[in-house]
């Protein structure tokens, strides 16, 4: 299995402090990988490395077999826990802006027929996350859950190779979180996404993912707690097919065909 994303012996050190050591794993296309671990274990650092926001001190990261560029780019989408949307743009503009960046390098604004086309795409994306009725409000006027829906729509419109989620539902009410789980599961299926998501909620990890990676320290020196870093200690592939097969029986045949592929 050739991975979409491969981490090869990745280390992250701040001076003497070892945050991550010998992290090795591959993510295949279509996987929904959840990263769990105790707080401070370096889950978010790992995600930032894949994102390109931080550089590993050692090791190699391959995206589609090629070494990953040393900065963030449109091949990796991201949703953070907070501050993921632009406060000065309306909901529709927030989704539109990605298309404008890629299609209008100089002004980052589209006009005429191109704008119409982009607007239609943006509206479709908003519809997919259930924000079609809120196109013209500013993010500050929306609840936390709606802001995260917007952040997801904003990310997905760029069709990134891999979607990185950093505790995206951590600040939401349990009820809203359930809605968001259904939303992200549906989008993952419909758009054939590859997702890498960090969470501290183990229950969330096992209910959402097709695979759970546990990041923790293998060795611990009580006299030098930073001597050893975390690595992927458990790599559990969850058999989601069984559960989905049961769901699929109840729903249409086409859905069953899709879930077989997973």
């Amino acid at each position: 299995m050739t991975g979409l994303l491969s981490l090869r012996n990745v280390w992250l050190e701040y001076g003497d402090k070892v945050i991550l050591e010998r992290v090795e794993f591959d993510v295949a296309e279509g996987e929904f990988v959840l990263i769990v671990g105790p707080s401070g274990a370096g889950k978010s650092s790992l995600l930032r490395i894949v994102l390109g926001q931080e550089q590993p001190t050692r090791g190699q990261i391959l995206l589609d077999g090629n070494p990953m560029p040393r900065e963030c780019g449109p091949d990796r989408g991201v949703v953070f826990q907070r501050y993921s949307v632009f406060p000065h743009l309306t909901v529709l503009q927030n989704v539109l802006v990605g298309l404008e960046y890629s299609r209008a390098p100089l002004l980052a604004r589209l006009f005429g027929a191109k704008r119409k086309q982009a607007l239609a795409e943006a509206r479709e994306m908003l519809d997919a996350v259930g924000l079609a009725d809120h196109a013209n409000v500013y993010p500050a006027q929306m609840s936390g859950g709606m802001q995260q829906r917007l952040a997801i729509a904003q990310t997905l419109i760029m069709r990134p190779r891999i979607v990185l989620l950093d505790e995206p539902f951590g600040a939401l009410d349990p009820g809203i979180r359930g809605d968001m789980h259904r939303l992200i599961t549906r989008l993952w299926r419909e758009h054939g996404l590859t997702i890498l998501m960090v969470t501290h909620d183990i229950k969330e990890a096992f209910s959402l993912g097709t695979r759970v990676l546990t990041v923790d320290k293998r060795r611990h020196d009580p006299h030098a707690p930073h001597r050893f870093g975390s690595t992927a200690v458990y790599d559990l592939r969850l058999d989601r097919k069984k559960r989905e097969a049961a769901e699929a029986e109840a729903s249409a045949v086409s859905t069953a065909g899709k879930s077989e592929k997973l």
Binding site: L51, C72, S84, F86, Y101
Partner: peptide, 9 residues
């Protein structure tokens, strides 16, 4: 970071 992941220069 978000803007860069959306392709912004």
């Amino acid at each position: 970071v978000k803007a860069q992941t959306l392709g912004a220069s």
